[in-house]
């Protein structure tokens, strides 16, 4: 799943993109720089947010489980995919198919 490339497409479809990782901001910063990531990469070092979304440590690896949530403008979770293995992400096409249609 190449998110950086997909970001523009999400934007065209009227949606924003953000990613969360159980890591410190400084650890993620170098990752963002190396990968040319410009969308918000959010640091959740104490996994509070991963826990709130019930995706923390499901694979018993001390990390967030691969997951994608589509949240509408009313903050409702309209679609979600929680991975059952490492790297179990939905394709960009799948995410696009579940984006709410927003008149732009």
């Amino acid at each position: 799943m190449e998110l950086q490339q997909a970001e523009g497409t999400f934007r065209q479809r009227g949606a924003n993109l953000a990613a969360v990782a159980v890591a410190s901001a400084s650890a993620l910063e170098s990752w963002c720089q190396a990968g040319g990531i410009t969308y918000p990469m959010l640091a959740d070092p104490d996994h509070q947010v991963a826990e709130a979304y019930a995706v923390y440590n499901l694979l018993d690896d001390g990390a967030a489980t691969p997951a994608v949530f589509i949240i509408d403008a009313e903050r409702r979770i309209t679609w979600q995919h929680v991975g059952s293995t490492a790297n179990d992400y939905p394709s960009v096409e799948t995410i696009l198919a579940h984006l709410p249609s927003t008149p732009e």
Partner: peptide, 13 residues
């Protein structure tokens, strides 16, 4: 203001 695609990465740091 707009829908959000929120991704959780498995990466740790």
């Amino acid at each position: 203001e707009r829908p959000l695609v929120l991704v959780f990465f498995q990466r740790r740091g």
